[in-house]
């Protein structure tokens, strides 16, 4: 029943790589906001943020080396956040579809 988490010592090289990537991506996302991508700007910004968050979760927070349960908890958190965001936005996106009589 116990799922032992092998205690994994992450090499310092990995930390250095993740850190460098995070810093570079921070400045990339700042720069890219000045480029006109139309409605894609927010999606690019969010994708970069998701990427940065993922490497923090995977390497700094050791989820990559963690138990299956930890991975499941992380995934369920993301799923539920999506429930909250997308189901509500579903209302916001479709609210205008049906006209108001008399208006």
């Amino acid at each position: 029943m116990q799922e032992h988490s092998e205690h994994h010592i992450v090499p310092k090289r990995v930390y250095a790589l993740v850190f460098t990537t995070l810093i570079i991506m921070t400045w990339v996302t700042a720069w890219i906001s000045t480029v006109d991508l139309g409605p894609m700007n927010i999606w690019v910004a969010l994708s970069i943020a998701v990427f940065k968050a993922s490497i923090v979760v995977l390497f700094f927070m050791h989820v990559k080396y963690g138990t299956r349960l930890t991975k499941m908890i992380v995934c369920s958190g993301i799923l539920w956040l999506m429930f909250l965001l997308f189901v509500t936005m579903g209302d916001m996106w479709t609210r205008g579809w049906m006209g108001v009589p008399g208006r």
């Binding site: 700042a30 906001s33 000045t34 927010i42 910004a45 979760v57």
Partner: peptide, 29 residues
């Protein structure tokens, strides 16, 4: 505590583009 601290970092990773970086087109960085 490390997990907590990284989580707080992640929140900021999202706050930065959402609050500071909305459509900076045509403005110097």
């Amino acid at each position: 505590f490390g997990l907590y601290w990284h989580f707080v970092d992640i929140v900021w990773i999202f706050l930065f583009p959402l609050l500071y970086l909305i459509d900076r087109v045509g403005r110097p960085l």
